[in-house]
């Protein structure tokens, strides 16, 4: 047992401190999964090391950055968390840019044919039928749900549907409720709707109905004497450049 323990400690000590010699580690909001994976592949084809991508909720990733995560770049799905990191000088301020924007859409199962125009006081509650629920990411905590609630509130229809929300843990789970017909309607990001063949976009929310949905990107400030990874900066430029933006656009994101 002791010998095993010694071997384990040796193993632990041998583990090099950085993930790989040059591949940057990128923390990104879960909603960017398909788009950034494609962008990373394209970046690698341009004779760069392929970035290591870790996807999770922006909040979880931001907390990991606060704890000193050995990562090089962060793409957040909301500005608040990026602001919080900036306030603590955990990101390189000069590297922060708005990468892309997103939009909100009303969706239904792919087989549906609901006709509904989104405008002030539009009859959303009636469209849900007698017992149907509106699928949302948790409007109390998850950004997609917070945006959806803001949009419905500004359009004056929130009070009519507030009691009929099916709150999901994240936006993809909300979409799954619609995909499987458990909810007749749902509100998700335009990018989510584009990724699923099982939902149909009923209508797009006017961008003025909710706060701007923007994804900021920044390099993470190195701590404990780590060196900055130049490949991270190269990937950041790639994403902001023409090729990267084109890939993101194909996945439904809008220009920042």
């Amino acid at each position: 047992m002791l010998r095993l323990l010694t071997a384990l400690i040796a193993l632990l000590a041998l583990t090099p401190p950085a993930l790989a010699a040059t591949a940057p580690t990128v923390l990104a909001a879960a909603s960017l999964q398909e788009a950034l994976t494609e962008a990373a592949d394209a970046f690698a084809r341009a004779r760069h090391p392929r970035p290591v991508l870790a996807f999770a909720a922006s909040s979880a990733l931001a907390r990991q950055v606060q704890a000193g995560a050995p990562a090089d770049m962060f793409v957040s799905a909301d500005e608040q968390w990026m602001d919080a990191l900036a306030a603590k000088r955990l990101i390189v301020a000069a590297s922060r840019r708005d990468l892309v924007t997103n939009a909100l859409v009303l969706i239904e199962p792919a087989a549906g044919s609901t006709r509904l125009a989104i405008a002030r006081g539009f009859p959303l509650a009636r469209a849900l039928g007698a017992s149907g629920r509106l699928a949302l990411a948790d409007p109390a905590a998850v950004p997609a749900g917070i945006y959806a609630k803001a949009a419905l509130t500004s359009l004056g229809v929130w009070p009519s549907v507030a009691g009929r929300i099916a709150a999901a843990e994240n936006v993809r789970a909300a979409m799954a409720l619609v995909e499987h017909g458990q909810a007749p309607l749902g509100i998700v990001y335009a990018t989510d709707a584009l990724a699923s063949a099982k939902v149909r976009v009923v209508a797009r929310f006017p961008s003025a109905s909710h706060p701007r949905i923007v994804y900021p990107v920044a390099l993470i400030a190195p701590i404990n004497g780590r060196a900055a990874n130049p490949e991270a900066e190269a990937f950041r430029r790639f994403l902001l450049g023409r090729e990267g933006q084109a890939i993101l656009r194909r996945h439904g994101f809008g220009p920042a």
């Binding site: 583990t15 995560a69 990562a71």
Partner: peptide, 28 residues
């Protein structure tokens, strides 16, 4: 664990600065 063993934490910071070991984001 994040607060304790993260490189900005008391234990994780010591590990990284003195031994060059980081457990965060690693299989360890």
């Amino acid at each position: 664990l994040l607060l304790l063993l993260g490189p900005a934490g008391p234990v994780g910071g010591w590990l990284e600065r003195t031994l060059g070991v980081t457990v965060m984001f690693r299989w360890t």
